[in-house]
Nucleic acid binder design. Structure first.
Length: 1166
RNA sequence: GCUCAAGUGGCGGAAUUGGUAGACGCGCUGGAUUCAAAAUCCAGUUCUUUCGGGAGUGUGGGUUCGAUUCCCACCUUGAGUACCA
C-alpha cells in the first residue's frame, strides 16, 4: 500500500468536521486548557505560507494537551471589520460585508486543508452584530465608569455623581482631564443637567475630546502614525496634515501603573514586556514650580514702554491679521486715525492693536481706552461684541463705539466724546499694563527625573507651544520669539524629530527665580522641548543633561558644575550612580538617591514641588472616520453624547450609498439616510425625522479595529450567549487564556488595549482575573524572497577611463560623456550581468584596482549584440568603435517568485508570458555566460505587491498538509524570522513516507504483537522524553528531528512491534495528525487518535551500564573509551592512564593534573 | 542615541546548571538498483594537512582543568523606540 496523502487528509478532515471532534465542553471534570492564536484578518489575498506558522504551533500544543487529558478550548474566528474591505467597497461599490464573507470563505477553506483542530462551533466574527453587540456593550460600561486613583480601580459613574452632589470634587482623586476644576456640592447642584454632563465627560473612562490627528484629506480618514511614511499616507501616497477633531478617547492612561505592574505577573516574552514598559514610559522624579520674575528692563530704545505688548496666547497668529488690517483701513478708520495719531489728543493711540486675542481698532494704553469704529457687519454680531466688551472691561479697559456714519458725518463730535472720556480716565503707568515688579504671579511647572541636580539649573527651556510663552516674553524679544514660534509651528512633527542635531532656540527675555538660590535664571524657548510630554517645560541642567549642555554651549549660557571631581568641559555627565553632588548647598556631599530625596523634601517644604511620577502612555483615540467598523451606541442631545440603553443593542451599521466621507467632510456614516435615534420607540429611524426633541442624530464615527479584538478571547468562552457577554459559569471555568500565540507586532497595540479592557472588566467584577492571558509566545514571521531582473534604462557613451570604486561596487567614469541612448526595445539583464561588483569579482579584479577598458569590454561584449539589436543604425558606431566606452543604468523589475526555480533561474518565455510583464513581450533578454537567466533575490515581507507570496494551496497539493505542518515547524525556532524556502520540504515529506513504510508494506499493515527489543524500547522512551520536553518548551523544530531519528532507528532495528509503534504514532499525531489518524485506525482503533493518552515515559529503559567517555587533553577531545558507569574516579583515572593512546598523547610527559567527572568526561592537563 | 535579540559548515539550523561543536534536514560527491529517468537504498561531506596531525562557533581580551555557553570591550545584523527632561 502506498502512502496516499491526498485521500488520507481529505478523509480525516471530513471525519473531524462531521464528528465535531474538537468541541470543548463548558463544564467538565477534566482540567481545562485554553489555547488561542490571534484570529486572522481576512484581507483579499488569502493565506500565504507565513500565516499558518503560529496556528500550526498552537494546534500542536492543543492536540498535545488533549493527549495529556485536558479539556482543551482551541477556538477560531475572524477579525472581520477593517479597512481593506472598505477600500474595495469604495472602488467597486460592493458591500464590505459581501467582500468580507467571500474572503472568509477562502480563509476557511485554506485553514481547513491544513488540518487544524479548531472548535469551529465557537466561531466569532467581529463584524457580526451578535458579536459587536457586546463590543458596544463594553463601550457603554466604559462610559458609565470613572477611575478612582485612591483605590486604583474603576467605579460606576453614578457613585461619582452622588459624591459630587454631597461634597463636590475636592476629595475626589480621579483620573480625569486636567481642565476639570474644583467645585463644591452647592455649585454642582446649581448646574444644569447639560453642565453636569459636560463635566462628567471629563471623568468617564471613555470621553469626547479634541485631539490632534493625522488627517488625510484624499482618503478622508485619520491615519495612525505607522500608516504615514515620509509625511504621506502609506496607502496611495497622499499628503497628510495635522488637524484637530472631536473624537472618542479611552482613558487607558488611568491604568498605566496597573498595566506596568501586571507585566510581572504574566509569562510573556521579555522583549514584549520590555516594549510595553517602554510604551508606558514610567519615569519617577519630581515636579518643580518656578516663579517667573519680571524682565529687567534694558536701557535701549523702547525700554520704557514694555507695556504695549498686550496680546494673548495667539498673538503670533493674529499679529499678521492686525498688520493687514492696519494696511487696509476702512474709510472711517482712516479718517479717525488722522485725528488720533501722533498724540494729537495728547495721548498715544495705537491702531489695530492686540489685547488678549482681540484686534481693537484704536487703543490708548495709558488711559486704557478702546475706540471701535463699527461698520454694517456689527449689526449682525451684537452679542459677540457685547461679550468682547465685557472681557475687556474686566481687564480695566473702557470701550466706546462709534458707527461709520458718525465718524464720516461729524468727526468733531466723535473727537469730543473721545476727549471727554480721556479726561475722565486716570492715567496708568505703562508698567501696570505689564508690571515690572518682582513676582508676576506666573508659575512654570517642570518635571524632572533628577531633582538632585537642581542647583545645576542655569536656565529654563519651554516648548515653543507652551501657554506662557507669549505672556512672559519681553517686548525686546517679542519679534524673535514670535518668529521662532511661527517657524516651529510650520515644521511638521516628523521634520522636528528627524532633525535633532540642529540646536535652535530663542531667549524670551524673562527670568525665573531659582527655588533655592533665589537667583534669576533666564527662560528660553527651544524646540527640543516637546509640548506633549510632561509639562512642556524643563529646568535645564547643562552639566547633567547632554541636550541642555549642547543648548547651553550653543547659546553661551553658563554651565555650572555640581558634580564632585567630574570634568564637564567636553560633555554632560549623566551617570547617576557615581555622583557626589557639590556646589549645591544642602545637597553637598550626597549621592544620587539621598540627594533626590532631600531635594524633594526641601521643595515640598517650600511648597514649590513634590515627588511625581510621569507616564508617557497617552489616552487612546477610539474614533475612526470609516464605514466598516462597529457603530457607537451613541446619540447626541444638544451636542452632549447619550448612551443608548444596552437592551436595545446591537445598533447595526446603516446602509449607505457611498463608502466615502461626505462632501462636508463627515465620516461615511454621514451618507446614511436612516441614522437617527428615536427615544420614544427606541429605534433607528430616518434622518428626516430629527427634531432634537424625541429624535436625535446618531454618532457618525465607527470604532477602531482594536475594539473587537479586545474582548474576543472572553467571548469564545460562551459565544452564543444572547443575554450576557458570557455566563458566569463559563468565565469561572475557563478563567483566562492559558496560551496565546501571536506576532510581536501587536506589542503596543492590541496586546496593551486588550489588557486594559480586561482590567476594566475585572474592576466591574465581570471577569475573575485581571490579565486575559497567562502565557504568550510570539511566532516569528515567514518572509518572502522577492526576485528581480534588471532593465537597462540608459546607455551612456563616453570617452573616459573607467575606474573601479573603493567599495568594489561602483564603477565611475571620468572624462567626457558623449551621449546617452535609451534602448528602443527593453533590454532585460540577468543578475550577474547587471551587477558590476559580482561581475568584476568573477573577473578576478580586486576592489580599488584601476582597470582598463578591455576588461569591461569583455563584460559589455556579452550584451553588446543585444544592445545593437535595440539601438538605431546611426548609434551603432559607438559600440563598434574602440574609441568609445559605454556603461548603463539599470533599474530592478519585479519577477513573480512563482516562475523562479530553486536555482534562482527563470524560463525567459515563461517570463514574457506572465501577465505582470506585458511591457516586455518584445524585450531582449541578456543571459549569463552559461546561457541561463538568473534573478537577484532579496528577503522581504511577503506581500502581494512584491510578487513574492507563496500560497500554501500548492504545497498542500504537492506534499500534503502533514508535510506543510512538519516543514513549517522544522524550519527553525518558532519565534525567529526566516525566509520561506521550499528546498527542504522533500526532507520532511520523505520522513512521512519512511514513517508509513515502518507500519505498512505492499501487503498492508505489517505491525505485529511481537515483544519489543531493548533497543526498540530505548528508542521509544528516548523519543517520548525529548518530545515532551520540546513541546513544553515550544521547541517544535527539534522534536521533528527527534521523530526522524526515531523512525530511522526503528527502521534499522526492523521494528514491527505494536507496543512500540502504537505509542510512537500518538507522539507524532499533534504534528502530522492525518497520517497518524490513518495508521491509528489501521492499528484497530475505532476512536479518533486525538484523545488517546500520551505515552508514559519510563526511565528504566534508558539506564545504561557503561559510558563512552571522551578523553580530552587540555580541553580538546582526542579519543573515547568505553568504561562502566559505576567505576570509581580512581579506577577511571588508572584505566585512562593505562591506555596506550594516552601515553601516545603525552609523549612521555607527566600529566600535571587529571580531572575525572564520572559519567561525563576525563580531562588530562599536560 | 537608547532598549532588546542575534552572529556556529555551501544552506535551514542543533548543542548552554560550562564537559565529545556541527544533531536532524537540504544541497553536493561517489556507489547500488534501472535500458534510462524518477523514486528508493548505501557511503562520504567544517576547514586544512606532508595523512602524524593542526585550526575552528563575529573580533580582541579574561575567568576555568575545560568556554558556542560565564565576564569585559568592540564589530556586524535585525527589531522596537526616539530630543521623554
Amino acid at each position: 500500500m502506498k502512502y496516499n496523502f491526498n485521500d488520507i487528509e481529505a478523509k480525516w478532515q471530513k471525519y473531524w468536521a462531521e464528528n465535531q471532534t474538537f468541541k470543548a465542553e463548558n463544564h467538565s471534570e477534566k482540567p481545562k486548557y485554553y489555547v488561542l492564536d490571534m484570529f486572522p484578518y481576512p484581507s483579499g489575498a488569502g493565506l500565504h505560507v507565513g500565516h499558518p506558522l503560529g496556528y500550526i504551533a498552537s494546534d500542536i500544543y492543543a492536540r498535545y494537551k488533549r493527549h495529556k487529558g485536558f479539556n482543551v478550548l482551541h477556538p477560531q474566528g475572524y477579525d472581520s471589520f477593517g479597512l481593506p474591505a472598505e477600500q474595495y467597497a469604495i472602488q467597486t461599490g460592493q458591500h464590505p460585508a459581501i467582500t468580507t464573507a467571500e474572503n472568509i470563505k477562502t480563509y476557511r477553506r485554506q485553514l481547513d486543508q491544513i488540518g487544524f483542530s479548531f472548535d469551529w462551533s465557537r466561531e466569532v466574527r467581529t463584524s457580526d452584530p451578535n458579536y459587536y453587540k457586546w463590543t458596544q456593550w463594553i463601550f457603554i460600561q466604559l462610559f458609565e465608569s470613572w477611575y478612582c486613583k485612591e483605590h486604583e480601580k474603576a467605579f460606576p459613574i453614578s457613585e461619582l455623581v452622588k459624591l459630587f452632589a454631597e461634597e463636590g470634587n475636592a476629595n475626589v482623586n480621579a483620573a480625569c482631564d486636567a481642565t476639570a476644576q474644583e467645585f463644591t456640592a452647592e455649585q454642582w447642584n446649581s448646574w444644569s443637567s447639560e453642565e453636569q454632563q459636560e463635566l462628567l465627560l471629563k471623568y468617564r473612562l471613555t470621553y469626547l475630546a479634541e485631539t490632534e490627528v493625522n488627517w488625510c484629506p484624499a482618503l478622508g480618514t485619520v491615519l495612525a502614525n505607522d500608516e504615514i511614511v515620509n509625511g504621506v499616507s502609506e496607502r496611495g501616497g497622499h499628503p497628510v496634515i495635522r488637524k484637530k477633531m472631536t473624537q472618542w478617547s479611552m482613558r487607558i492612561s488611568a491604568y498605566a501603573e496597573r498595566l506596568l505592574q501586571g507585566l510581572d505577573t504574566i509569562d510573556w516574552t521579555d522583549s514584549l514586556k520590555e516594549s510595553q514598559r517602554n510604551w508606558i514610559g514610567k519615569s519617577v522624579g519630581a515636579s518643580v514650580t518656578f516663579k517667573v520674575l519680571s524682565p529687567a528692563l534694558s536701557e535701549g530704545k523702547g525700554a520704557k514702554t514694555p507695556g504695549y505688548m498686550t496680546g494673548g496666547n495667539n498673538s503670533h497668529l493674529l499679529i499678521e491679521r492686525a498688520k493687514e488690517m492696519r494696511a487696509n483701513p476702512t474709510q472711517a478708520e482712516a479718517a479717525l486715525w488722522q485725528s488720533l495719531k501722533g498724540k494729537k489728543l495728547d495721548v498715544k493711540f495705537r491702531q489695530q492693536h492686540l489685547i488678549e486675542d482681540y484686534i481693537l481698532d484704536f487703543v490708548c494704553l495709558s488711559k486704557q481706552l478702546i475706540i471701535e469704529v463699527d461698520g454694517k457687519i456689527h449689526e449682525s454680531q451684537i452679542e459677540e461684541d457685547a461679550k468682547r466688551t465685557e472681557i475687556l472691561e474686566n481687564n480695566g479697559y473702557k470701550v466706546i463705539r462709534f458707527k461709520n456714519k458718525e465718524v464720516l458725518g461729524d468727526i468733531d463730535s466723535v473727537l469730543n466724546t473721545i476727549s471727554e472720556e480721556l479726561a475722565q480716565r486716570e492715567s496708568v503707568n505703562s508698567e501696570q499694563v505689564l508690571p515690572s515688579g518682582k513676582d508676576l504671579g506666573w508659575e512654570i511647572e517642570v518635571f524632572t527625573t533628577r531633582p538632585d541636580t537642581i542647583f545645576g539649573a542655569s536656565f529654563m527651556t519651554l516648548a515653543p507651544e507652551h501657554d506662557l510663552v507669549s505672556q512672559i516674553t519681553t517686548p525686546e524679544q517679542k519679534e524673535a520669539v514670535e518668529d521662532y514660534v511661527l517657524a516651529t509651528s510650520k515644521r511638521s512633527e516628523r521634520d522636528r524629530m528627524a532633525d535633532v542635531k540642529t540646536i535652535s532656540g530663542v531667549f524670551t527675555g524673562a527670568y525665573a527665580e531659582h527655588p533655592f538660590t533665589k537667583e534669576p535664571i533666564p527662560i528660553w524657548i527651544g524646540d527640543y522641548v516637546l509640548a506633549g510630554y510632561g509639562t512642556g517645560a524643563v529646568m535645564s541642567v547643562p552639566c547633567g543633561d547632554q541636550r541642555d549642555y549642547d543648548f547651553a554651549k550653543h547659546f553661551n549660557i553658563p554651565i555650572p558644575n555640581i558634580f564632585e571631581g567630574v570634568d564637564i568641559s567636553e560633555e554632560a555627565f549623566a551617570d547617576k550612580d557615581n555622583t557626589v553632588i557639590a556646589n549645591s548647598d544642602f545637597l553637598n556631599g550626597l549621592k544620587y538617591k539621598k540627594a533626590v530625596k532631600r531635594a524633594i523634601f526641601e521643595l515640598e517644604k517650600l511648597g514649590q514641588g513634590e515627588g511625581k511620577t510621569n507616564y508617557r502612555l497617552r489616552d487612546a483615540v477610539f474614533s475612526r472616520q470609516r464605514y466598516w467598523g462597529e457603530p457607537f451606541p451613541v446619540y447626541y442631545v444638544n451636542g452632549m453624547p447619550q448612551m443608548i440603553d444596552a437592551k436595545h443593542l446591537p445598533i447595526t451599521l446603516p446602509e449607505v450609498e457611498k463608502y466615502l466621507p461626505t462632501e462636508t467632510g463627515e465620516p461615511p456614516l454621514g451618507n446614511a439616510t436612516v441614522w437617527a435615534w428615536n427615544t420614544d420607540t427606541n429605534d433607528v429611524v430616518s434622518n428626516d425625522l430629527i427634531d432634537n426633541e424625541t429624535i436625535f442624530p446618531l454618532e457618525l464615527n465607527t470604532m477602531p479595529g482594536w475594539a473587537g479584538s479586545s474582548q474576543y478571547f472572553n467571548r469564545y468562552m460562551d459565544p452564543h450567549n444572547e443575554d450576557e457577554i458570557f455566563s458566569k459559569e463559563a468565565i469561572d471555568y475557563w478563567q483566562q487564556v492559558d496560551l496565546y500565540i501571536g506576532g510581536s507586532e501587536h506589542a503596543t497595540g492590541h496586546l496593551l488595549y486588550a489588557r486594559f479592557w480586561q482590567k476594566f472588566m475585572f474592576d466591574l467584577g465581570l471577569v475573575p482575573v485581571d490579565e486575559f492571558s497567562k502565557k504568550l509566545i510570539n511566532q516569528g514571521m515567514i518572509l518572502g524572497t522577492s526576485a528581480f531582473a534588471f532593465r537597462i534604462d540608459n546607455i551612456i557613451i563616453d570617452k573616459s577611463e573607467i575606474i573601479l570604486g573603493k567599495d568594489g561596487k561602483e564603477v565611475r567614469t571620468i572624462g567626457e560623456q558623449v551621449t546617452e541612448i535609451k534602448p528602443a526595445r527593453p533590454i532585460i539583464l540577468s543578475y550577474y550581468i547587471a551587477d558590476t561588483a559580482v561581475f568584476l569579482k568573477n573577473s578576478g579584479i580586486n576592489s580599488g584596482d584601476s582597470i582598463d577598458s578591455s576588461i569591461l569590454d569583455k563584460r559589455f561584449n556579452i550584451i553588446k549584440n543585444s544592445i545593437l539589436e535595440s539601438v538605431a543604425e546611426s548609434e551603432k558606431e559607438y559600440f563598434n568603435s574602440k574609441e568609445y566606452h559605454y556603461s548603463y543604468i539599470t533599474s530592478p523589475i519585479q519577477v513573480d517568485v512563482n516562475i523562479v526555480n530553486a536555482s534562482d533561474e527563470i524560463n525567459v518565455s515563461e517570463f514574457k508570458n506572465h501577465p505582470l510583464n506585458k511591457d516586455y513581450k518584445e524585450a531582449i533578454f541578456v543571459t549569463e555566460t552559461d546561457g541561463n537567466f538568473k534573478v537577484k533575490r532579496e528577503v522581504e515581507k511577503m506581500s502581494k505587491s512584491k510578487y513574492n507570496v507563496v500560497n500554501p494551496d500548492q504545497i498542500v497539493a504537492d506534499y500534503g498538509a502533514d508535510s506543510l505542518r512538519l516543514y513549517e515547524m522544522f524550519l527553525g525556532p518558532l519565534e525567529q524570522y526566516k525566509p520561506w524556502n521550499t528546498a527542504g520540504i522533500t526532507g520532511v515529506h520523505s520522513f512521512l513516507k519512511k514513517l508509513w513504510k515502518l507500519y505498512v508494506d505492499d501487503n498492508g499493515l505489517k505491525v505485529t504483537d511481537s515483544e519489543p527489543t531493548k533497543d526498540n524500547l530505548k528508542t521509544l522512551h528516548k523519543t517520548i522524553k525529548k518530545v515532551e520536553e520540546d513541546i513544553e518548551n515550544f521547541s517544535f523544530n527539534t522534536s521533528v528531528s527527534t521523530f526522524m531519528i526515531a523512525v530511522n532507528e526503528l527502521t534499522v532495528q526492523k521494528c514491527a512491534s505494536k507496543a512500540i509503534l502504537e505509542p510512537l504514532i500518538i507522539l507524532i499525531s499533534p504534528y502530522a495528525p492525518h497520517i497518524a489518524e490513518e495508521l491509528w485506525e489501521m492499528l484497530g482503533n475505532n476512536e479518533s487518535i486525538s484523545t488517546a493518552p500520551f505515552p508514559k515515559f519510563d526511565e528504566s529503559h534508558l539506564v545504561e551500564s557503561s559510558k563512552n567517555y571522551p578523553i580530552s587533553f587540555n580541553g580538546k577531545m582526542r579519543f573515547t573509551m568505553e568504561l562502566p558507569l559505576d567505576m570509581s574516579k580512581e579506577d577511571i583515572e588508572a584505566a585512562v592512564m593505562a591506555n596506550e593512546k594516552t601515553q601516545e598523547q603525552l609523549q612521555g610527559r607527566e600529566p600535571k593534573k587529571v580531572i575525572v567527572v564520572p559519567g561525563k568526561i576525563v580531562n588530562i592537563v599536560g
